[in-house]
Design a protein around this nucleic acid. Sequence first.
DNA 1: ACCTGAACACCGTTCAAGT
DNA 2: ACCTGAACACCGTTCAAGT
Lengths: 229, 229
Amino acid sequence: MARPSKPLLSPEIIVGAALEMTAETGGFTVPELAKRLGVRPSSLYNHVSGRAEIIELIRRQMHEAMAVRVDVNADWPDVVRLVASAHRASMARHPWLIPLLATSPADLDTSITTIENVATVLSKAGFTDQDVLMTIAMMDIITIGASLDLVSPQNLYPPEVLAETATLARITRSVPAGTPRADAAFEFTVELVIDALRTRLSRSRRAAVAADAATAAATGAATARHATG
Amino acid sequence: MARPSKPLLSPEIIVGAALEMTAETGGFTVPELAKRLGVRPSSLYNHVSGRAEIIELIRRQMHEAMAVRVDVNADWPDVVRLVASAHRASMARHPWLIPLLATSPADLDTSITTIENVATVLSKAGFTDQDVLMTIAMMDIITIGASLDLVSPQNLYPPEVLAETATLARITRSVPAGTPRADAAFEFTVELVIDALRTRLSRSRRAAVAADAATAAATGAATARHATG
DNA sequence: ACCTGAACACCGTTCAAGT
DNA sequence: ACCTGAACACCGTTCAAGT
């Protein structure tokens, strides 16, 4: 029962079991993990350096799971919707890891491709570099916040609390609580933001056109001379 | 050295020390907490039921810290800005508790007053009940996401990662990285959202006016008869 | 009422011993 | 190379004993 002819474990097997366990119980411990794998706790240390590395591997895998195939020719609002939804769904699957994900740099892995594609789409649509960067950061903020919101209790404002309020009580009463609150809030936010970006885009386009016109008028004679350069 | 004439501990003292410790090290353990208080671990159990209750008390205190005095007569964009900033700052002070805060219902405490006041301001400004609720949820999403973003590394996209990209690399190069990235992203998001809410508000006002006009036209004769009712 | 010391179950990790 | 068993330091918690 020492060294088996075929290894019983591997980093992949360990991470897989750990992911299962976190999905079921919201966390994992090394001894429980070993039991689930039919092995002694110390055996795991032949394949991973410890609990920290298991978590790190899970984090990597989540980042990879967040890779979304983006059609670089699609409309930018569709891309924003798609990527935001996918990221939110991926993160909400492992809420206790969200702080970890949010506070760790992007990996050398597939998820960076998604972001690169989003940047390309936004850039092609005419957003300024600054706006592209800010929009991507904003999407991060919203998906992280919304994924935590997604795993929060359906009833954020219990009746006892509402009893002490006037406006809030009236409002929560008058709004149909039917559709999942978190989904509605996420959709509202994304659509609002897309709307705002749209007007921002058309404003900056108009400004660009005006600037071009002004430049053209001011340097008209000069440009005419070497128009083919 | 058994029972002192004056108690050495109290829930407040324990929570205070725990908060100090989390601020310094990002967490706390019961034995360390006891050591800091010059007491044996078991002593704490005379005042709190256990580690879980200490965390719960911290959570309550954070909720209370997030209470913001809102001027109910201020402009709604100012209120949104103020409350969002204050919440983000409070949460970022204890990042490891953010998931806990986000996933626990509002307390019977002071923080609900802040929300009630925000609701009142938005309502008075003319937003529909639905929009008020969605806006508050959206503010939650944004402040939670932004507070986690605030504690993430300054350099989310390390050079090795950017090497594999074209658009993203160009953009991050062309944008001055001077001002703290997280602050800029938060401000961008809040202002964008306020802008969008502003146009949404004026749209719904126009719609209301139009509806009123239509109603008035249709029921003109009838209304004229009991205009004083 | 409130602090102590001993005790327990559990955790993460190390390492010599086995094949 | 890879699993095991014993061991260690640490954690959260309980409880009888003391004043």
